[in-house]
């Protein structure tokens, strides 16, 4: 039983929980607790209530697990719940939040494949993120966290944020530009 728990994919475990084997939920918590803590910490950019928020995320995951389609990726679905929970937390605190409409979701953008360049500067970007993430607007902060820190694809990020894939690309591109200018102001030499 123990061995079975650790060999199965997230989606298989989710299917078992849906079928009533709720003991398997512990495996999902253990697999994603760290990631959720990190995501919430970066998203909210302050340390308060992180434990309570992550706890609430897992409670919502359990309550809504029957709506999860096991043919799709569990992690994207989990991050979507986390995204909603974190946005709602910010709304309650009346802090920087996502507006209902953004112009960059309205028009199509070309998605140039610059993955080679992205791999080359990934380490630089990660360093920049750690130093100036707080100064980024939420709509730029979130795709940067998900792409560079959580290593999710554009497609997964688009599913989580419910925006077109090309919008994810454009936001990451703009976020990098903003971070570079912040870095310049802080007199870091890139």
């Amino acid at each position: 039983m123990e061995e079975k728990k650790y060999k199965q994919s997230d989606e298989e475990i989710a299917a078992l929980i849906q079928a009533g084997d709720i003991d398997f939920f512990e495996v999902l918590i253990r697999r994603y607790k760290e990631k959720m803590m990190r995501y919430a910490r970066k998203f909210l950019s302050d340390g308060e209530d992180i434990n309570d928020i992550v706890q609430e995320i897992f409670i919502k995951v359990y309550a809504n697990i029957q709506s999860f389609d096991t043919k799709r990726k569990f992690s994207s679905w989990l991050y979507r719940i986390a995204h909603n929970e974190l946005v709602n937390t910010l709304k309650k605190r009346k802090k920087n939040t996502l507006p209902l409409f953004e112009l960059d979701t309205f028009l199509p953008h070309s998605l140039r494949d610059d993955s080679l360049r992205q791999n080359l500067d990934r380490r630089d970007i990660q360093e920049m993120i750690n130093k100036c993430l707080d100064q980024l607007e939420l709509k730029y902060r979130e795709p940067i966290i998900l792409y560079y820190l959580e290593n999710l694809s554009y497609k997964e990020i688009a599913e989580i944020m419910r925006v077109p894939i090309s919008t994810v690309g454009i936001r990451i591109k703009r976020a990098k530009k903003i971070m570079k200018s912040i870095f310049k102001k802080l007199e870091y030499n890139l």
Partner: peptide
Amino acid sequence: VLNKIKSGEVKMKSK
């Protein structure tokens, strides 16, 4: 989380 599930405080919504 697990205690809340086992005690029935948190319930799974049906399909």
